[in-house]
């Protein structure tokens, strides 16, 4: 059974280098874990400028309710993916990802 391994910083580096497109099998496993564990407060992006600015937000009420927006915005989707990856890594590892 695949389990999260906080020592696999190589996977974080691989993701940062290419958030979209082909991933190694272990990175794909990690992403599948990360992306399906937020049964409440799922991270989403709210497009606050048409295809130009996205604000990080979390759904409410067991992912059934409107998003609660943060004050973090992005001007590209790759940066948003990396920020959420780091948040999820921290939530799973109990410590921040030591890669900026």
């Amino acid at each position: 059974m695949y389990r999260f391994d906080a020592s696999r910083l190589d996977l974080a580096r691989e993701y940062k280098a290419r958030p979209f497109g082909e991933h190694s099998p272990d990175l794909q496993y990690l992403l599948n874990l990360m992306r399906t564990r937020e049964t409440d407060g799922r991270h989403v992006l709210v497009m606050t400028q048409p295809h130009a600015q996205w604000t990080l937000a979390r759904l409410t009420n067991g992912n059934q309710g409107p998003p609660r927006l943060t004050n973090v915005t992005f001007d590209n989707l790759e940066a948003a993916e990396w920020a959420v990856f780091r948040l999820r890594w921290e939530a799973m590892a109990g410590a921040p990802l030591p890669i900026e």
Binding site: P19, F20, L31, N32, R35, T36, R42, H43, V44, L45, V46, M47, W54, P67, L77, A80, E81, V84
Partner: peptide, 9 residues
């Protein structure tokens, strides 16, 4: 997981 990216709304 299906889309391989964050959901945008």
């Amino acid at each position: 997981a299906v889309q391989g990216r964050l959901t945008v709304i």
